[in-house]
Design a protein around this nucleic acid. Structure first.
Lengths: 346, 346
DNA sequence: GCTGCTGTTGGTAGCGCTGTCAATCAGCAG
DNA sequence: CTGCTGATTGACAGCGCTACCAACAGCAGC
């Protein structure tokens, strides 16, 4: 590619080295491991780089070193606020490290996920974060072939590809429903949207808790593949009430639905929690500030993202964490919307 | 870098070319511009690539071609849901194109923004999306030096660095406040959090609308640098009410605050809109589903992201849009929370 | 003086791909 | 059959950086 002379484009490492009076390789070392240089050379290279306004060429570095400082993140949705918090954790934890986050949206499609995983192959990422444990066989094969650390987030489960940070959606849902049962609720509805694998596991938890108390009734379960939205919560409650007029509680698979349910109750003058108890899932910030305040299951989304990146970086840099699977747990946040009958003042 | 023999690492283009019986450069062309090949070679290269499971090396491509297919996005926050919608638009519009989104968080700091801009220099991105129009002088200089198309989003203003997609926050706030005034509200409070430049411009719009009606009173304005949150809306309303007991309306600089205000009203049994009208900003999905439903100013956040990417890609590929500055406007969404006195049923 | 060590520096030889430009070839008018 | 055009194809020479040694200085121990 015979470029005409040295077109005075961007400054290259060679130029910096020349000005500093060292070899290019020494200058190169300065940018990767300054401690390896003698103090005198270090300051010479540093001032030369600053003087010339040197900006390293990442593509050349990646090609020569056969590695990148990219952490790939596959997340199923940007609409779902849950992932917002996870992403915040991811970005916050990567800050200050040399690693760059590269995130893509699988749109809740495991085929899309597989395609994107292959795409990441071309980048040779330093590490990978993938959502959930329901990958295709091929996806798993690609991941295993990639020879970089990988963290699966959002839930725990058997057989991690590499590492895992999450919690048990089944247990969390089971606990939430058991809480309602313990307060004497009997006709506890399940309201679910999107119904991705993790929501399915929440449904399993609901079902088993209900069956355990001999309260299960398929009519109580209302689900839709539609993406979640606050308005949808109201619609679903209306539908459920039409089927089950004696409903006395609802477990919503997320907080948006729960708030939509609360608004629908206000619209219909259904007293919460007297006539209907509500519990959501995730414990978004607004759950504590509504009136009545809404119960929920706190999940550690920010921490999930943060810990995933921390584990990943540790693994990339050869400090593999002792625990490959981290369970961040959950916490029941009981508020006014699921206070016991008659004890709802506060 | 004398690598031992041909370590049977990843497949390279040369291997594909050899199997297909063509020169490497022809194989290379197949991946960039298949139409340039004769049909026979095209199918030969294609099947060879598939057979070997060839994955192109992006770093090598970027180094050789001196360009990347990365679109850099600088956004001030991940906590603020507004940017969620913008990001969705950005990601959706980039899908199907060869461009990859690389986004970073400036945390509402123009110095951080400047640093990240310099970081992007090293990547030679194909294009750049930056938030707002308040960059440092140095940031502007770096952008101008980068010789790639740039779109500023979120607001319109004078002197674009290159292109712009947004709307006037001043006009939007002015319209919202004028609406409240036109319904006979006189003691209209302003509740603001974070107070970034765009929120400042909303405050300007509020102030001018109030002054125009001879209703301005500095006591009506309550702001805090604290990041926005729903709970904060309630707190701020409480504080404002303490200062201004005869408050009859509030303009909240975003919807989270507005919902927090509504909940606080419910908690205090202040009838909305009879005693207090509420209007928010952005028109998030939940505004329509609350009870009473909440008025807001609809902003086209998704479209902003989408259009920015579309304009950027067009510009990168030599189809510069006619209009460098696109004003997406806004729309007043008048709902129950700001219905005229006495007409609030619905 | 010699050996062996540690710490620092430099030379060589690519990493895998593509821009440039020249070469080749089929098709067709003269 | 020649000359010309446009469509395909290929050779060459790097893009800017770093891995892998080798070299060399300085020093301690024998």
């Amino acid at each position: 590619m015979p470029r005409k002379g040295r077109k005075l484009g961007p400054i290259r490492l060679t130029e910096v080295a020349k000005l500093a009076g060292v070899s290019p390789i020494t200058a190169s070392r300065f940018f990767r491991n300054p401690e390896a240089l003698s103090v005198s050379k270090r300051v010479r290279v540093e001032s030369a780089a600053r003087e010339l306004g040197y900006v390293p060429n990442l593509a050349a570095r990646a090609l020569a070193s056969q590695r990148t400082e990219v952490i790939g993140v596959l997340i199923p949705s940007l609409t779902n606020n849950v992932f917002n918090d996870v992403l915040r954790g991811i970005y916050d934890a990567s800050e200050g490290s040399p690693y760059t986050i590269q995130f893509v949206n699988t749109r809740y499609s495991i085929l899309q996920e597989e395609r994107l995983l292959r795409l990441f192959q071309a980048q040779k990422p330093a590490g990978l974060i993938v959502t959930g444990i329901n990958q295709t066989e091929d996806s798993r094969a690609v991941m295993k072939a990639m020879s970089c650390p990988i963290v699966q987030i959002m839930e725990t489960g058997p057989d991690p590809v590499d590492m895992m940070v999450g919690f048990s959606h089944y247990d969390a849902a089971f606990a939430a429903v058991s809480h309602l049962i313990s307060h004497g609720r009997k006709r506890i509805g399940f309201i679910g949207a999107r119904m991705d694998p993790r929501v399915q596991r929440r449904l399993d938890g609901y079902r088993d808790a209900m069956k355990g108390a001999a309260l299960f009734d398929p009519n109580l379960v209302l689900t839709t593949p539609t993406p979640t939205a606050m308005t949808l919560g109201g619609t679903l409650l209306a539908d459920l009430l039409a089927k089950v007029p004696d409903l006395d509680a609802v477990f919503c698979i997320n907080d948006d639905l729960a708030l939509g349910v609360l608004f629908e109750c206000q619209r219909r003058s259904i007293p919460v929690p007297e006539k209907l108890a509500i519990i959501g899932f995730n414990d978004m910030e607004f759950m504590a500030s509504s009136f009545p305040s809404l119960s929920s299951v706190r999940t550690n989304r920010y921490e999930m993202g943060r810990d995933a990146v921390t584990m990943l970086i540790d693994a990339v840099e050869g400090r593999r964490p002792d625990k490959r699977v981290v369970d961040l747990g959950f916490e029941l946040m009981i508020r006014q919307s699921s206070a016991p009958h008659g004890a709802q003042n506060n």
